[in-house]
Design a protein around this nucleic acid. Structure first.
Lengths: 238, 238
DNA sequence: CATGTTAGGTGTACGCCGTACACCCGTCAA
DNA sequence: TTGACGGGTGTACGGCGTACACCTAACATG
C-alpha cells in the first residue's frame, strides 16, 4: 500500500526528467553540488538508477548543455544580419544568467554537443545570408569566440560564485577591498569610473548588461566595417 | 645508509618546488591528472606532506596560476599603448600555449590571484598612460575580457584535449567528421574556407595564431577608434 | 650538555565521488 | 504459462581531498 502510493507518487524516470532535474539542481546549488548521488536523491531514486538513462556523468553534462542551449530564442526572421546576430546573442546571455554554471560546463567539455553545433551553424548561416563570404564568416566566428554564446568573458565573474544564488540579493556594490585597492591603483581607479552619470542605480559599481553590449557592439561594428570593405584574408589589414 | 642517501637525494620540499612540480605535472599529464596524491608521488613524498606548504588544493591551484602569469613578458617600455598591449597579450598567449590547462583553471577560480590582479593593473596603466580616460579604460577592460590574458576563447579548443600533449603530433587537419558536416552545412562550408591562399602549410584547417591576431586587432582597432573620438559612456554609441 | 620547542614528513582514517556488477521484479509477447 | 527484458536496487571498489595524531631531527636556551 504505502509502497504502491510511493511508486505512484513519483513519475517514472526518463532521460528528460533527469536532465531537467540536473539543470535545476545546478541552478540552485551550484555545479559543484551536482553529483550523481545528490541528483538521484532529488529524484527519489538510487544513484545507479540514473545509469539506465545516461551513460555516465559526462553524457549527463552534455545533455544539460543541450537543454540550456535549447532555451536560446530562435533567430528573428526578416532582419539584417547585425540585428539578428545581436538579438540572438543577447537572448543567449539571458539564458546564461539563469544558468550561471553553463559557461564553465561548456568550456570544460572538449567536443561540442549537437545543440551547440546547431546554434553555431545557424549563426554562420545568418552571416552568410547577410552577404558575408565564407572566408570572412570563418574568421568572424573565431573573433566572436565564446561571446557568441553569450559568455561575458569576465575574468572573475561574481555571479559564478559557487554558492546558492536564488533569492540572494545581487551582492551590494562588491567593490574591491581596500588592501587590494591600495596595491593596484589603476584597478581601483577604473572601478570607481563606472557609469557615474545617468546612473539609475546609485552606487552599483558596474552595469553588467551595459558592459556586455558595449563589448558586443564594438565587435559587431568592427565586423560590419570589414564586411563593407569586402575584407578577405588574402588582404591582411596589417 | 640507504635511508640517508634517499633523504639526501631528494631536495627538501618547499612551496616553490611543489608549485613547479604541479605545473609540470599539469603540463604533461593534463589538469585532470593533478591530484594531491599524484603530485606527492612525483615529489617522492607522502600526500599529506604537501599540506605543510600549501593550505589545500585550491591554494595550490592559485599558486600555479601565479607561476604561469609570472611567465608573461613585462611590458615593453617606450611604445604607444597599442603596440604595448598587443605585444603583451601575444606574450600571454605564448605562455598559455605552454600551459593549456591554465585558462580553465583561471576561469574556475572565483577570485583573482595577486599575480593576475597585478597583470590587469599593469594593463590598465598602459591604457591610462596612452591617454585613455578612466571611464573608457574601464569599459575597454571589460570588452577585452579574458582575451587580455591570451585566452583564445575558442568554444572547443582541440589543444585543450585532456590527454598528454608533449611530443604528440599537432593533430593533422582535425576537420570535422563527415556525418557532422552533413548535418551542419554552414560549419562545413566555413571549415573549408580557411586561409586557402598563401597557405604555407598545406591542408592545415585553421591557423590559430592568425585567428587570434585577427580577433585581437579587430578589438584594438575598434578601441583605438573610440579613443580617438574621445568616447565616454555618457555619449552612448546607439 | 640536557631539554623543550618546533618545522616538517608519516600513517591512518573518514566521507565523498563515479560507476562496475550482480540481482530482482513487474510487464508483456509468444 | 513462460521467458525475455526494461528498469530500479544493493553492494562494493578504487580514487579523491584532507583531518588528526604521531614521530623525528634540528636547534635555541638553561
Amino acid at each position: 500500500m504505502a509502497e504502491q502510493a510511493e511508486t505512484l507518487r513519483r513519475a517514472p524516470l526518463s532521460r528528460d526528467r533527469i536532465l531537467r532535474a540536473a539543470v535545476a539542481l545546478a541552478d540552485e546549488a551550484g555545479i559543484e553540488s551536482l553529483s550523481m548521488r545528490n541528483l538521484a536523491q532529488d529524484l527519489g531514486v538510487v544513484p545507479m538508477a540514473l545509469y539506465k538513462h545516461v551513460a555516465n556523468k559526462d553524457e549527463l553534462l552534455d545533455g544539460m548543455i543541450d537543454v540550456v542551449v535549447g532555451e536560446i530564442d530562435p533567430p528573428v526572421p526578416d532582419t539584417d544580419w547585425k540585428h539578428a546576430i545581436r538579438g540572438r546573442i543577447l537572448s543567449a546571455r539571458q539564458v546564461l544568467r539563469r544558468h550561471p554554471w553553463a559557461p564553465l560546463a561548456i568550456e570544460s567539455r572538449n567536443m561540442a554537443t549537437p545543440a551547440v553545433l546547431a546554434y553555431l551553424d545557424s549563426m554562420v548561416g545568418t552571416f552568410r545570408a547577410g552577404g558575408f563570404s565564407a572566408d570572412l564568416a570563418h574568421h568572424v566566428m573565431h573573433a566572436m569566440g565564446s561571446r557568441i554564446l553569450g559568455f561575458s568573458q569576465e575574468l572573475f565573474d561574481p555571479a559564478r560564485r559557487a554558492g546558492r544564488s536564488g533569492t540572494t540579493k545581487p551582492d551590494p556594490p562588491a567593490a574591491l577591498p581596500p588592501e587590494v585597492a591600495a596595491r593596484f591603483p589603476h584597478l581601483a581607479e577604473i572601478s570607481m569610473a563606472a557609469s557615474h552619470d545617468e546612473a539609475s542605480v546609485v552606487g552599483q559599481g558596474c552595469d553588467d548588461q551595459f558592459e556586455f553590449e558595449f563589448a558586443l557592439d564594438l565587435l559587431l561594428d568592427g565586423i560590419e566595417r570589414l564586411q563593407q570593405q569586402d575584407w578577405t584574408s588574402s588582404r591582411r589589414p596589417r
